Computed example of a mutant assay.
Amino acid sequence: MSAIVVAARGWLGTPYVHQASCRGAGCDCLGLLRGVWREVLGQEPEVVPAYTADWSEASGQERLWQAAWRHLRPKDLAAAAPGDVILFRMRDGGVAKHLGLQAEIGDGASFIHAYSGHGVVESALTPPWARRIVARFAFPEGI
């Protein structure tokens, strides 16, 4: 099993807290990714500035996507693998402002994410979720 998936599953049940990244105490979707990064790779590659829950949607800036390009390896959307980081556009015309970590692929595809009102959960990658995926990334080489 992917070290990324094992680490992410360790965060299941963590409450949702905007901008937080503390396993068991609270995190948002980016905080989950940051925490898994620290557990698997060590120090985070950059300091994350404060951000709003809308992820610059009003300005149209793809801040989350740009950060993923700086630190992760882009992948073809169809090349799903456990441990991938997947970015979601929650509405047509909006910016990508949610992310998750692919846990399972195939018929039982699932992903782990921190979701407002639910905390960190593993969700089935159902068609309504899958159609919102706009980018797929892998962690840097060596894990």
Rank of each mutant, 00 (worst) to 15 (best):
109 A>R: 01
44 E>H: 14
125 L>E: 01
10 G>C: 09
51 Y>T: 06
67 A>W: 14
71 H>N: 13
131 R>G: 02
126 T>G: 02
123 S>Y: 02
11 W>R: 02
81 A>N: 08
15 P>S: 08
111 F>D: 02
3 A>R: 10
92 D>K: 01
16 Y>A: 03
50 A>Y: 13
128 P>W: 12
71 H>I: 05
97 K>W: 10
109 A>Q: 07
91 R>L: 10
7 A>G: 09
110 S>Q: 00
131 R>C: 13
113 H>W: 03
30 L>G: 01
73 R>T: 12
43 Q>L: 12
65 W>N: 04
123 S>K: 03
82 P>Q: 08
143 I>R: 13
56 S>I: 00
32 L>C: 04
28 D>S: 07
91 R>W: 14
113 H>V: 04
57 E>I: 05
93 G>F: 06
13 G>F: 12
106 G>F: 08
8 A>K: 03
110 S>L: 03
11 W>V: 03
74 P>K: 05
135 A>G: 12
14 T>Q: 04
13 G>H: 09
104 E>G: 01
71 H>L: 08
129 W>P: 00
14 T>N: 06
29 C>N: 02
30 L>Q: 01
68 A>Y: 09
53 A>M: 13
98 H>R: 00
119 G>V: 07
13 G>Y: 11
122 E>Y: 09
94 G>D: 11
99 L>F: 03
35 G>N: 05
106 G>L: 05
42 G>I: 08
5 V>N: 06
118 H>I: 02
37 W>M: 01
74 P>R: 06
56 S>C: 15
139 F>A: 09
56 S>A: 15
123 S>W: 03
33 L>G: 05
26 G>L: 07
54 D>E: 14
33 L>N: 04
83 G>N: 05
41 L>I: 08
119 G>Y: 08
70 R>I: 10
121 V>G: 04
63 R>S: 15
83 G>I: 03
13 G>P: 00
65 W>D: 13
45 P>M: 12
65 W>E: 13
79 A>W: 01
131 R>T: 13
140 P>S: 13
73 R>F: 10
142 G>R: 07
46 E>K: 00
65 W>H: 15
77 L>D: 01
97 K>R: 15
77 L>G: 02
32 L>D: 01
3 A>Q: 14
137 F>W: 04
53 A>T: 11
131 R>N: 08
78 A>G: 10
19 Q>Y: 10
70 R>C: 14
24 G>S: 11
93 G>R: 00
121 V>K: 08
23 R>S: 12
63 R>E: 15
88 F>E: 05
50 A>D: 14
21 S>P: 00
77 L>Q: 04
120 V>A: 07
59 S>N: 08
15 P>M: 08
29 C>G: 03
135 A>F: 02
74 P>E: 10
5 V>F: 11
53 A>V: 12
76 D>M: 07
13 G>R: 03
79 A>C: 09
132 R>C: 12
72 L>P: 00
